[in-house]
Structures are given as C-alpha cells and as structure tokens.
C-alpha cells in the first residue's frame, strides 16, 4: 500500500487570545490571555478521516479556524498540501471548505440562493452551479419545495445538510467539519454521519472532524487526536487508543481513554 501525501501538517502551532501587547502587563502576570492551542504538531494524510476529540473549550474550533485561514497562529506553521496558510492563503482557500457548528447562512435566503452565492465565490458559473446544486440537494434528500424557501423555515438538521452541500459544491480536497452534528436530534445526527461516511467512500477528500461525541469519533475516524486545554494528549487509531486503558467487565470506550488521560469527563452537563 502506497503512503498517501500529507494533506495537513501542523508544526508547533500555538494560539492564545486576550494577550496584552504591553510588556508591563506580561511581567506582572496579567494579560497572558487564554492559550487555546498549545504547541500542536500533527500530520494528516490524504484520504483520512481525522478526528479531533475534546470537551467544550478544549481548542477544537480554534484548531479548525487556524487551518481554514480565519486565524493567524502566534507560533508555528500550518500547511495544506504543502501550501503555507499564511503565505499562500488563496491557494489554501481553494483547497479547503468548512462546515461549522452553527449553519452560517443568510437566513431569509433560500438554500438555492445561499448555495448560488457560495458557488459563485468559488468561481462557478450560474448554469454549472445551478446544475450541481440541484444534484447535491437531491442526493441529500432535501424536499423539492424546500429549495426555494427561506433557510429560517428549515430545521437545524436540514440546515446542516445544506451547509454540507455548500462545502461539497466546491469539491474541496480538505473538508473541515467543526462539530457538524452538535445540537442535532438523533435522526439528523445519523443522517449527517452517513453523509460523512459517503464522502469518504465516494469523494477523494480528506476530512478533519472535530467533535465531543466519542461514539461519533469512534465510528467515523481513522485516527483521533484527543485534545485537552489546547494540547494533544493522545493521537492514534480508535482501537490503539482504547488499548491505553484496561477495564474489567466491559470493553473500554474513548470516554474511558479520555478520563484516564485527563482525569475529566468528556461531556459536561452544559453540553446537552
């Protein structure tokens, strides 16, 4: 089996927020801010589904924003297929797309209007875009009459499907899914997860998926990085990660792995 090229590489990447520029504040301990990503280094190979698993506030979304050119790292380097996210921003942007936790749309516009906007931003012509949009929405089983209705009249699950359709329209080689199933009902969650599997099987895409849902990570990901307080505490395949803990009477879960490594619960009550 040939080794796939590196799709995403992070070298000693750190990102803090709320840092003061003034030396006096730094010397006095104030203004150091919050370190959301702390010296992360990793490689994701082409065709992988790579999971970033961690609780709320562990730095998962910051991780995705650093990769998607929306944040500038304080230190370190991020490259997508060899392109530096800072120096070759446009080249990187052509290769990626992102589905965020909140389906970000113009709420009064319809799925068709929102997707046309997205398609044109990526240089697709009107006729080509319309043909692709109709095909993708049909595949996602979006009701025909919903295509022209305002997004605000759709359920969160349907909105999230449209968000995934928007990302697929531009045929990204690296797809960033930032908690795509958070807040969805079980049925919508299963539909979105099936879609991610289908993407892996039918598209030549690399997928980076952040989640705090251990079952989702276990079911979908080839490899998982467990993050806590901005640091990677473990990185391996789900089965290898589970070997890190031993349990009597039941097979270990990723929840057990996370608790053993960090001493914390992966989900707190506020997640629900």
């Amino acid at each position: 089996m040939s080794i796939q090229p590196i799709a995403l590489e992070m070298q000693n990447v750190s990102k803090s927020f709320g840092q003061s520029s003034f030396q006096w504040f730094k010397r006095n301990g104030a203004g150091n801010g919050v370190r959301a990503v702390d010296n992360i280094s990793l490689q994701v190979r082409r065709g992988e589904i790579f999971g970033v698993l961690g609780p709320n506030g562990s730095g998962k979304s910051t991780f995705i924003r650093l990769v998607s050119t929306l944040l500038v790292p304080d230190t370190g380097r991020v490259t997508i297929f060899g392109h530096d996210v800072l120096r070759e921003e446009r080249a990187v942007q052509r290769l990626i797309n992102r589905v965020s936790v909140e389906a970000a749309f113009f709420k009064k516009l319809s799925p068709l209007e929102n997707l046309m906007y997205g398609a044109r931003l990526y240089g697709l012509g009107g006729a080509e875009a319309q043909r692709k949009i109709v095909a993708i929405l049909k595949r996602l089983a979006l009701r025909a009459d919903a295509i022209n209705k305002p997004m605000e009249e759709m359920s969160r699950g349907m909105q999230q499907k449209v968000a995934i359709a928007r990302a697929l329209l531009t045929a990204p080689v690296l797809l960033l899914l930032d908690e795509p199933t958070t807040g969805l009902d079980p049925r919508s969650k299963r539909e979105v997860q099936a879609l991610v599997r289908e993407l892996r099987d039918t598209h030549d895409a690399t997928i980076v998926l952040t989640t705090h849902d251990m079952e989702e990570a276990d079911a979908l990901c080839d490899r998982i990085a467990i993050v806590n307080d901005g640091k990677i505490v473990a990185l391996d395949t789900p089965s290898e990660l589970k070997k890190l803990v031993t349990r009597n009477g039941h097979a270990p879960t990723l929840e057990d792995v996370f608790m053993q490594l960090t001493g914390k619960q992966l989900k707190d009550e506020s997640d629900e």
Binding site: R65, L70, R94, A104, Y122, G123
Partner: peptide, 11 residues
Amino acid sequence: EGTIEYTLMAP
C-alpha cells in the same frame, strides 16, 4: 447573519 467567516475564507 453569522456568515462572515464563510465569506472571508473564500478564495
């Protein structure tokens, strides 16, 4: 609308 990040990450 919450779309700012989507627009600003377009190539």
